Amino acid sequence: MVAAAALSAGIAAGAILSGIIMLSMCWRRRHCKKAQRERSEPEKGQITARVADGPDFTEEEDDVNSVKRFTWAEIERMTENFSTPVIGEGGYSKVYLARLRGGAVVAVKIHINGGGSVRLRRAFTRELDLLRRVRHPHVIRIIGFCDDREEGALVMEYAARGTLHEKLHLTDSQQVLSWSARTRIALQIAQVVDHLHNECGLPIIHCDLKPSNVLLDEQLNVKLCDFGSAMSGFGPTISANPKSAMEGSPGYVDPHYIRTGVLSKNCDVYSFGVLLLELISGVEVSTADKTKLLEEDLVDSRLRGDFDGEETAAMLVLARRCMAEQPSSRPSMAEIVGAIGRLRTAEELVISVEKSVV
C-alpha cells in the first residue's frame, strides 16, 4: 500500500516536472522567435540612414521610406508645367529638374508614350516595380510616381553631379576625374550590379549598363538608374530571349547576346567591361575600336601620368576578362568586386603611407 502510494506520488511528481519542462521549452521557443523577428526588422532610422544622401523631406511632404502616388496635376506643378530645365533625355523619356511642395529638389522622369505602345508601357511598369523593390545606396532612390496617364512619371532623388558620361567627356581639364575617383566609381558600380545579380531574391539583370545610366551625387557616389530594360526572375541558368526584343545600347551590348538572343548575368559583365575600359581610357568606347584600345593599353592622357601603372594594367586585364568572347570565361560580378576592392585597398594604403611620411 505504502509502495503504491509512493509510486503514485512519483508518477505525479514526474508529470508535474515534465509539464514544467515543456512549458519552459515553449516559452523559450516563443521568446527566441520574437527576438529573431526583432533582429530581422529594421529599427527606425536604419532605412533612412541608407538613403540619407538624398534631399531632405518632411514627414508631411514625403516619407523617404515610402513611395508616394502623385496625381498628374502634382507632376505638372513640380515641373512648372514642364518648363523647368531638362537634365536628361532618352529615346522615349525626358528628365526634368523639379521641386516638391516643401522645396526639396528632385528629378522627374516622364516616359513618353503618345502612341500607347504596350512595350513602352511595360518598360515604365518594369522600372517602377524594380525601383520600388530594390533599395541600395548605389541605386537611384524613387520618391513617387504617377501612372494615371499613358505618359508615366517617376519622381526620383536628384543626383547633382550629372552622369558619368558627362564627367568623363567634359573638355574642361580642371574637372577631369582623378584615377582614384575612377577606381572608386568602378567599385561602386560593380557592388550594385553584384547586389542585383545575387542579393535580390531572384536575380535582376540590368541589361543597359553604360556611363549615361550611371548618375553621380555631390560626393561622386554612384546612383545606377534606368531600369526600363532590366530583366528579373532568372534562375541560376541562362534564359533565352527573342531577338525581336533585344535590350541595351549599341557598343555596350554583349555580342554573344546579339548573336544568340541568350540573356544571362554575363551580359551585364560584358557591359561593365566596356564601361571599365571607358573609365581607364577616357575614350567614348561605344564609337571606338574596343579591341585596339585593349591592345594598346591606352590610359586617359588627361590624367597626365597621375596614376599607378600597375593598377591601370590590372584594371585593363580585368576589362579584357569581362569582355571575353565566351560568356563562361568572364568573371562573376562578385569576383570583380573582390578584384577592384583589393586594388582600392592597396591604393589607400600607399596614400596613407605617403601622408605619414610627409
Rank of each mutant, 00 (worst) to 15 (best):
S117A: 10
R132M: 15
S232N: 05
S249I: 03
Y96T: 00
M231A: 12
V67Q: 10
A240W: 01
A52K: 10
L215I: 10
L17G: 10
L154W: 06
T79Q: 13
T312M: 06
Y92K: 09
T79I: 06
D300N: 08
R149P: 01
D148W: 11
P327F: 09
V337C: 04
M246E: 06
D172F: 11
N81T: 06
E76S: 14
I112P: 08
H256D: 04
L7S: 08
I112R: 15
G248L: 02
V222G: 03
I11M: 08
P137Q: 12
M1G: 11
R119M: 07
S180G: 09
V95A: 07
L168W: 03
H256E: 03
I258K: 09
E61K: 09
L220T: 02
G115A: 12
T163N: 03
E247R: 13
L128E: 09
C207G: 08
I143L: 15
E59V: 03
E335Y: 00
E166R: 08
G152D: 10
C225A: 14
H165G: 01
S232M: 09
I351W: 13
A123E: 14
V262D: 02
R344N: 09
L7D: 03
R126L: 06
L220V: 03
L130G: 00
K109T: 04
T312Q: 05
T48D: 12
L17I: 05
E311Q: 10
A6R: 08
R39M: 14
P331F: 01
H138R: 11
M333I: 00
I140R: 12
L298P: 00
S356V: 02
E80K: 15
L168R: 01
I238F: 12
Q188Y: 02
V283K: 12
R119Q: 14
A181K: 12
L187K: 03
T260R: 05
A104H: 07
Q36K: 14
T58R: 13
A4S: 10
